[in-house]
């Protein structure tokens, strides 16, 4: 009986909805939903990883990356001195964000985006 109902449901969802299920956008949405489910079901662990090692990695990368976009100043040292000086401040801001962000998917996306962006930039310039 249950199997028959499943078949009926599948039949109903064919037709006009079929193209949505097979398009790349649907694939991505489906993947994101799956990722969201995983993050929500492991929310505490994800939060720990975000606030701990990820925050440290993001802080270090932001500091290292700042050497390449901060102005050097007349003495050509501001881009080195200011990021080192700001290290504790950057850590606190990133940590507070990782702790306060309600939407874990967005939190992970922001942190991963920062990591990828900075690693890419550092690989390109170093």
């Amino acid at each position: 009986m249950a199997r028959d109902m499943q078949i009926n449901t599948d039949v109903k969802q064919t037709g006009s909805d079929a193209h949505r299920r097979e398009g790349p956008l649907f694939g991505m949405m489906s993947y994101l939903k799956g990722a969201n489910g995983f993050l929500q079901s492991n929310a505490r662990t994800v939060r720990w990883v975000l606030c701990g090692p990820t925050t440290l990695v993001v802080t270090v990368l932001l500091m290292m990356g700042a050497a390449h976009w901060l102005p050097e100043g007349d003495a050509k040292v501001d881009n080195i001195a200011l990021p080192v000086l700001a290290f504790p401040l950057i850590w606190v801001i990133v940590f507070l964000y990782a702790l306060a962000e309600e939407n874990l998917v967005r939190g992970v996306a922001v942190m991963v985006g920062l990591i990828i962006g900075h690693v890419g930039m550092l690989l390109a310039v170093m």
Binding site: V60, M63, A67, N79, P83, L85, F87, P88, M126
Partner: peptide, 20 residues
């Protein structure tokens, strides 16, 4: 925190980043 990290972590990392 600055004194804790600047000499042992910050400066070596910045030398890696800014001066290869």
């Amino acid at each position: 925190a600055f004194f804790g990290f600047a000499g042992n972590v910050g400066v070596p990392l910045m030398s890696m980043s800014a001066f290869g």
